[in-house]
Simulated scan of single mutants.
Amino acid sequence: MMNALASRVLGPICIMLVMSFQAVAAEEPAALIERLGGQAIGIVANGADTTDDKQKKFEALFDEGFDVPLVAQIVLGRYWRTATAEQRDEFVNLFHKYIISTYASRLNAYSGQTFAVTGEQRLNDDEVMVKSVVKDPGGPDLKVDWRVLNRNGENRIVDVYVEGVSMAVTHRSEFASVIAQTGQVETLLERLRSQTGQG
């Protein structure tokens, strides 16, 4: 149920953020997320762009906004250690395609949501949790927190929490249940190849 709610409301907001992510490493995490949210709302709400145009922008800027290899490693969890180098590389690639195909289909789902940063919590020297709220005209407010990691002088999102539930952990649980069917990472890779049209 939480995953369905996150897909309905978080999807467009997540897309709104990543679609305007630029090289802004010097900016503080809270200011970064707030500014990007405001800019991205205008982009997603723009009816002039075609769905294909929006998807291309989403994919390009998703790669800039999120630390995709690190997120993929977090999502694969303990199976990252047992996967071969070739399987790791393929998983990162398939995970990227999976996220793009999952969220790009919701690029036109924006329906008047507003986004505001409400605070931040420093987790350690390199990580900050930026707290925000999504106000949905068609439903209750939703608390969304963004885990931002500064690595090599760049701030990037590595996880998103919806009402306290980590999306990385949610995906990890889903993927682990697939691997558990055989105990082999290859089982998950086969599933992702099928879902992303890669085989």
Rank of each mutant, 00 (worst) to 15 (best):
D53L: 10
Q55G: 05
K57D: 02
F58D: 06
F58N: 06
A60S: 13
D63V: 11
D63N: 13
D63I: 02
D63L: 03
F66S: 02
D67Y: 11
P69V: 12
V71C: 04
V71Y: 00
A72C: 00
V75Q: 02
L76G: 05
L76M: 15
L76Q: 12
L76S: 09
R78Y: 00
R78P: 07
W80Q: 05
W80L: 01
R81K: 07
T82N: 00
T82W: 14
A83H: 05
A85M: 11
R88K: 01
E90V: 01
F91L: 09
V92A: 04
V92F: 01
N93G: 00
L94M: 12
F95Y: 00
K97T: 04
K97N: 02
Y98K: 00
Y98C: 02
I100R: 09
S101F: 02
T102G: 04
Y103W: 11
Y103L: 12
S105G: 05
R106D: 03
L107N: 00
A109D: 14
G112D: 09
Q113N: 08
Q113M: 15
T114N: 14
F115P: 03
F115K: 06
F115Y: 06
F115V: 06
A116V: 15
V117I: 15
V117K: 09
G119I: 15
G119H: 07
L123G: 07
N124H: 08
N124K: 01
N124A: 01
N124G: 13
D125P: 02
D125I: 10
E127N: 05
V128C: 15
V128A: 15
V128T: 05
M129V: 13
V130C: 08
V130E: 11
V130A: 13
S132D: 05
S132G: 15
V133M: 12
V134A: 14
D136F: 10
G138W: 10
G139E: 15
G139Q: 09
P140H: 08
P140V: 00
P140F: 00
D141Q: 08
V144W: 12
V144I: 15
V144A: 11
R147W: 01
R147A: 02
R147N: 08
L149H: 07
R151G: 09
R151F: 01
R151I: 04
G153S: 01
G153Y: 03
G153I: 10
E154P: 05
R156F: 01
R156I: 01
V158L: 07
D159C: 10
V160A: 14
V160I: 15
Y161T: 05
E163T: 08
S166T: 08
S166R: 06
S166L: 11
M167S: 00
M167C: 04
M167W: 07
A168E: 06
V169I: 10
V169D: 12
T170D: 12
S173V: 12
S173K: 04
F175L: 06
F175Q: 00
A176L: 13
A176D: 11
A176M: 10
S177A: 13
I179V: 15
I179C: 01
A180G: 03
Q181F: 01
Q181D: 13
